[in-house]
Design a protein around this nucleic acid. Structure first.
Length: 837
RNA sequence: GCGCGAGUGGCGAAACUGGCAGACGCGCUGGACUUAGGAUCCAGUGGGCGAAAGCCCUUGGGGGUUCGACUCCCCCCUCGCGCACCA
């Protein structure tokens, strides 16, 4: 057990107190300064902050403090995503009311964050379960309802049997619940939806205009939205003139290859094309079989396709040929029209099905030479396709669509995979949906003056299913805001992703009480300049928030199109091969690390161990290294305080101009050392600002400290020049390290005699003169292998360098008795002598 | 299956637009100080040969482009992630 650690406990408590007392990180709109809105995804108050959380907040704090020092007015808020199931489950298991459980967790986690010393403006703290918060969400819900952006319908939805609630499509991963991993089932239920599909095109288009986002997140969003262009048209049912089946295809060029058609088993027209009792029975049996499959089984691509041939036939409008009609499990009711024309020649799924059922296959695209595959889906010349023969696929698509349109048989059509966002939750701990049902007026939104519709405190939570609010008579029985008669309240609550879809706007004016946010404040701060959070929300929260922001814009509340300009998706913190989580029992608590090593050390280690986008394996030994480094800095500065501190304080409190040294070094050693200082400034600045490579930024600072110690050790006395250089190095080190380890650097900064906070200093500026070199080492290679080194003047003439290289005595033996074929000179870098025997 | 991304010492990782591979740190080895060291400091640390100078090999594997390849191109292997019957 190490003993001689710097007194981090006292230092951290001291500076947290001072920052709080001086309200150092409280901010206000200030149009005279550039703003920077730095935001980390707010946490769900699950209980304790662990090292997985620390990583995100350390990154956010580093960027916020860095931007402060770069002269920005930085908004850096924190709050709580406070509604959600764990609170309700805790209530069921332990009998604690969700409100108690939630606020106790918030209190504890807030104290943990405060002990981390993050530069939050705590005056802006919010919790989404606060009625003054969700009130505005209810108001927006009503406005969305008026515009048809919120609607209620009965539909087949994803149901999590363990959470006892509906899930949106985005919240199902691999057929399992995103939160509890239970297998999701399907259920027919009434529920509320947000019409995110109305924004599909815009959400997709803006993916191309978010250069600050990681490409993989944008790809995931594009895939999720799943745009496909094609055509829709009717297939007449043979012998039933009043019946037509609408199909959607992305390949209208292949219609001449249609050899059958398929309806989803649930398709409503199935009942109308069925001819007799026996067939009806067969259909019922098939449907039962299909519905027995779980969602996972049904959508797995690698399982055999099951189908049932119906007696009816449908007619291909292009050539009036009747083809057989099937119902099959590989056609989904939820996409397109729930019915397809099947073209086995050019579609892999149809090929597979056709083979199984002995159906004919017509090729309508010329295969390339030597093609041995089955269905052919690439481009080629059209064949067997009537008036389309000889065209390319793209051209044939256009012509076929035109043909349909001109005859009034169909239309060009764009489909999206994205479905509307189901937001009804049959649970208690969420924001009530502000709607009532009246016998006279039907479904009625709550009057604005009656908002918020608050969640009642007294409720029986059993987890047995059904919305718990339904059993709270005082909540359910209400007054119709339209007729004043009795009405019943909606008892579903909203998906908690609704709260997190606008909290970043609320932070701009968190106590504003006449609207969602104060428009001028939002206009000043928004959009978020840097958002930081986990990759797990690539499609969930990040898509919902983008959608909701656009809705607010269209309601006239804000002018911004997109909430987050730049996104940093940090990797997970792994321990023993798994993500840290309570259920896996591999959590390294923030309390443990902070008490043993200090907050600065914990943060430093997480920022140093890996670049932020990569997963980080927690390593108990690695943190010792971070601790050792900070101790080394501490000991060095303390040991030299008296000699360095003297005169270090600027006379008037004005920040000294650090871009010019008090002294221009007179020795080569001094010049080299000062060059190291300024190279470090450049490296650290670039690493933070350009690439988010915090690990290499820290490495550069470590190198500077190593150089500082070497410089000190190699000296033969404290000349004024040496002291000035060391002071420059020490101050630069503290300034550069500040955003990573704020407490220890702030303390040392003050010990050096500076009356003003380190974080009110300007970020160090590179002195170009210090970077200048007079000589460089040039590597000499012979046939690509390093054989020698030359010390030459910077920008020495190529010819001269060539001569020196050829004449170098370490190089000569490798060149002797060989012919020099060529000499490549890369100025200030290397010489490569190419030889031949 | 399709689409991305990644494979570098014992470990975490560096390497700008092709130009000294392995910065920085962990671990390990030896030494100093010490009653002690799990503190601190010094030295060493990719592999092989060698007393040393030095030489040879080395960025998943194979080919290619180039004076020169971790970096660019082609094929293959492994791992991770995403999508996964979306017509």
């Amino acid at each position: 057990m190490s003993t001689d650690r710097y007194p981090f406990r006292e230092i951290e408590a001291k500076w947290q107190r001072i920052w709080e007392e001086t309200k150092q990180f409280r901010v206000h709109e200030d149009p005279s300064r550039p703003k920077f809105y730095c935001l980390e995804m707010f946490p769900y108050p699950s209980g304790r902050i662990h090292m997985g959380h620390v990583r995100v907040y350390a990154i956010g704090d580093l960027l916020a403090r860095f931007k402060w020092m770069r002269g920005y007015n930085v908004l850096h808020p924190m709050g709580w995503d406070a509604f959600g199931l764990p609170a309700e489950n805790a209530a069921i298991e332990h009998g604690v009311h969700p409100v108690i459980w939630t606020y106790e967790n918030i209190d504890y986690m807030r104290s943990q964050l405060q002990k981390m010393g993050i530069s939050y403006d705590w005056d802006r703290e919010l919790a989404t379960c606060d009625p003054t918060y969700y009130k505005w969400e209810q108001l927006i819900f009503i406005k969305m309802l008026e515009r048809g952006l919120a609607y209620r319908k009965r539909s087949t939805v994803n149901w999590c049997p363990s959470c006892q609630t509906v899930l949106a499509n985005e919240q199902v991963e691999d057929g399992r619940c995103w939160r509890c991993d239970s297998e999701v089932t399907l259920r027919e239920i009434d529920g509320w939806f947000f019409k995110i599909t109305s924004y599909a095109e815009e959400l997709l288009a803006w993916c191309d205009r978010l250069p600050g986002w990681p490409e993989r997140v944008l790809t995931m969003q594009r895939n999720w939205i799943g745009k496909s262009e094609g055509a829709e048209f009717d297939l007449r049912v043979d012998g039933q003139p009043d019946l037509a089946i609408r199909v959607f295809t992305t390949r209208p060029d292949t219609v001449f290859g249609m050899t059958y058609a398929v309806l989803a088993p649930e398709h409503p027209l199935v009942d109308r094309v069925v001819r007799d009792g026996a067939e009806r029975e067969a259909v019922a049996r098939f449907r039962a079989e299909v519905s027995r499959q779980s969602e996972i089984e049904r959508t797995a691509a690698d399982r055999p396709k099951r189908g049932l041939r119906l007696s009816a036939k449908v007619v291909n409008p292009f050539n009036n040929t009747p083809v057989p009609l099937f119902i099959a499990d590989y056609v989904l009711m939820g996409y397109g029209t729930g019915a397809i024309m099947a073209v086995p020649g050019e579609d892999e799924r149809d090929w597979e099905f056709a083979e199984q059922h002995g159906l004919p296959i017509i090729e309508t695209v010329t295969r390339p030479e030597g093609w041995t595959g089955k269905a052919y889906t690439a481009d080629g010349v059209k064949i067997n396709s009537g008036f389309l023969d000889g065209l390319s696929v793209a051209e044939a698509k256009r012509r076929a669509t035109d043909w349909l349109v001109s005859r009034g048989l169909g239309a060009a059509r764009v489909n999206y995979r994205l479905r509307d966002w189901g937001i009804s939750r049959q649970r208690y701990w969420g924001a009530p949906i502000p709607v009532l049902y009246c016998d006279v007026d039907g479904m009625v939104p709550e009057a604005e003056k009656n908002l918020p519709v608050t969640l009642p405190r007294d409720v029986q939570l059993s987890g047995k299913g059904g919305s718990p609010l339904a059993s709270v008579a005082s909540f359910v029985n209400a007054t119709c805001p339209r007729c004043g008669g009795p009405a019943k309240r909606e008892t579903d609550t909203m998906d908690t992703f609704v709260e997190s879809s606008w909290y970043f706007l609320r932070y701009c004016s968190p106590r504003h009480d006449t609207g969602m946010f104060e428009p001028n404040a939002a206009a000043y701060w928004m959009p978020v300049d840097q958002y930081i959070g986990g990759i797990e929300h690539a499609v969930l929260h990040l898509l919902y928030a983008r959608f909701y922001t656009k809705v607010l814009r269209d309601l006239g509340l804000t002018k911004i199109d997109e909430p987050f300009m730049a996104l940093l998706s940090q990797g997970m913190v792994i321990k023993d091969g798994a993500k840290m989580s309570k259920s896996k029992g591999n959590v390294v608590s923030d309390d443990f690390v902070r008490e043993k090593y200090g907050a600065d050390t914990g943060r430093l280690f997480e920022l140093f161990a890996a670049p932020p986008e990569k997963d980080l394996e927690w390593n108990d030994q690695g943190i010792e290294g971070a601790s050792r480094f900070l101790n080394r800095v501490w000991r060095f500065v303390i040991a030299h305080v008296s000699e360095l501190g003297a005169g270090a304080a600027p006379p008037s409190g004005a920040p000294p101009d650090r871009s010019r040294a008090a002294t221009v070094p007179t020795t080569e050693q001094g010049r080299a050392f000062r060059r190291t200082i300024h190279e470090t400034i450049q490296r650290v600045t670039d690493d933070i600002e350009r690439e988010f490579h915090f690990n290499t930024a820290i490495a550069a600072i470590m190198e500077l400290v190593n150089a500082l110690q070497a410089f000190e050790a190699a000296g033969d006395g404290a000349t004024p020049e040496r002291v000035a250089l060391m002071r420059e190095a020490v101050e630069t080190t503290l300034l550069l390290l500040g955003p990573f380890c704020p407490h220890v650097t702030e303390e040392l900064w003050s010990q050096l005699g500076h009356p003003e906070s380190l974080f009110k200093q300007r970020w160090p500026v590179v002195d170009p003169a210090a970077l200048q070199k007079t000589e460089v080492t040039v590597v000499v290679q012979v046939d690509g292998k390093v054989r020698g080194r030359l010390l030459v003047d910077v920008d020495a003439a190529d010819d001269r360098v060539r001569q020196m290289a050829l004449g170098d005595e370490r190089v000569r033996p490798w060149v002797e008795r060989r012919r020099v074929e060529k000499v490549v000179v890369v100025p200030n870098r290397l010489v490569n002598i190419v030889t031949r025997a």
